[in-house]
Computed example of a mutant assay.
Amino acid sequence: MRKFIITALLAATAIPATASAQSAGEVRRSQRDLREEQRELRDAQRYGSRRDVREERRDVRDARREVREDWRDYRQSHREVYARGNFRAPFRQQQWRPGARISSNYYGSRYYINDPYRYRLPNPGRGLRYVRHYDDVLLINPRSGRVVQVYNRFFW
């Protein structure tokens, strides 16, 4: 009975600690831990036994899960902060498709996403820009006004 109570108390204190990553520093620490676990797995594959390799694979899997959870929590907590801003355009929302040509009113500098890496968006490429349109993210070519890629409900 005593062992059960101690286990329950440990679980109750450990779960909230891993449930939310509020800072980018915590995400970076999780990624660093993942890289360290991957190094240990490579060492176990070179020099260790089957049991060592199995344990290290489990550790890498757990570290990957932790990174995913931290990123999800970080995005969720920061999504709420940015949702308070005024990102609404002075026109109605429209569904865009790749290849559509849009007016420059829809992709003015006011709507640019200047740091796409903060949102874990891929590199936009030369001459392309990410633009926020309501809850969607559009990858556009500002010279021609063509939509290259659409991320629907990205900020939802």
Rank of each mutant, 00 (worst) to 15 (best):
Leu41Arg: 01
Glu37Lys: 04
Asp33Ser: 10
Arg61Lys: 13
Lys3Pro: 08
Glu36Gln: 13
Asp59Met: 06
Pro16Trp: 02
Arg42Pro: 06
Glu40Asp: 08
Phe4Ile: 04
Ala21His: 02
Arg32Met: 12
Val27Gly: 05
Ala11Arg: 03
Val27His: 05
Ala12Gln: 07
Arg58Asn: 05
Ala63Glu: 00
Met1Lys: 12
Leu9Met: 14
Arg64Pro: 06
Arg50Phe: 09
Arg29Thr: 10
Arg64Thr: 09
Ile5Asp: 13
Tyr47Ala: 11
Pro16Thr: 09
Val60Ile: 00
Thr7Tyr: 11
Lys3Arg: 10
Ala17Pro: 12
Asp33Trp: 05
Ile15Ser: 06
Arg61Leu: 12
Thr7Arg: 15
Ala63Pro: 01
Ser30Leu: 04
Ala14Ser: 11
Arg2Gln: 14
Ala12Asn: 09
Ser30Met: 03
Glu40Phe: 06
Thr13His: 02
Glu56Met: 07
Thr7Asn: 15
Arg42Ser: 11
Leu41Ile: 01
Lys3Asn: 12
Arg46Ser: 10
Val60His: 00
Pro16Asp: 06
Asp59Cys: 05
Ser20Arg: 14
Arg61Cys: 13
Arg2His: 11
Thr18Ser: 14
Glu56Ser: 07
Arg46Ile: 11
Ser49Cys: 03
Val27Gln: 04
Ala17Glu: 09
Asp59Pro: 02
Ala14Phe: 02
Ala8Glu: 11
Leu10Ser: 07
Arg28Asn: 10
Ser49Val: 04
Arg64Trp: 00
Glu40Leu: 08
Gln22Arg: 15
Val53Met: 01
Arg46His: 06
Arg32Tyr: 11
Arg2Ala: 15
Thr13Gln: 05
Glu36Met: 13
Ala17Met: 13
Arg50Ile: 06
Arg50Gly: 13
Gln31Arg: 04
Arg64His: 03
Glu56Leu: 04
Arg58His: 01
Gln45Glu: 07
Ala17Leu: 14
Ala21Glu: 03
Ala11His: 01
Arg42Ala: 07
Ala8Asn: 10
Val60Trp: 00
Ser23Phe: 12
Phe4Pro: 05
Met1Thr: 11
Arg29Lys: 12
Asp59Trp: 01
Leu9Tyr: 03
Val53Tyr: 00
Leu9Phe: 05
Arg28Ala: 14
Pro16Cys: 08
Ala19Ser: 13
Ala21Gln: 03
Glu37Ala: 05
Arg2Gly: 15
Arg58Glu: 03
Glu56Thr: 10
